[in-house]
């Protein structure tokens, strides 16, 4: 996939975070960025929809860092692409 996954994930986070987009780092947690569990549910939906992946039910989303999410999405996207490769 040629698109920058991190940029797209950050774009989605930016819709829900109280933290400014330019202050995002891979170490920022969703909680620290001002997102609650309801935001997280919407974010998971937006990520699934955007990347056409299925994210397994996480144990605690808000404690995850942006880096965790980017890594998870990257691996799910890679898994999907390897499946669809003939």
């Amino acid at each position: 996939m040629s698109e920058n996954i991190q940029e797209t994930v950050f774009d989605i986070f930016a819709k829900y975070a109280t933290l400014k987009r330019e202050e995002f780092t891979l170490e920022t947690s969703l909680l620290a960025a001002g997102m609650d569990s309801l935001d997280a549910v919407e974010i998971l939906f937006a990520l699934e929809d955007r990347f056409d992946i299925t994210i397994p039910n996480p144990s605690s989303v808000t404690e995850a860092t942006f880096g965790d999410v980017v890594q998870l999405v990257t691996s799910l996207v890679a898994a999907k692409e390897s499946e669809s490769t003939p």
Binding site: V41, E42, L44, F45, E48, D49, D52, T54
Partner: peptide
């Protein structure tokens, strides 16, 4: 052909 509904 969407695979999911909006969570709310």
């Amino acid at each position: 052909g969407a695979k999911r509904f909006h969570p709310f």
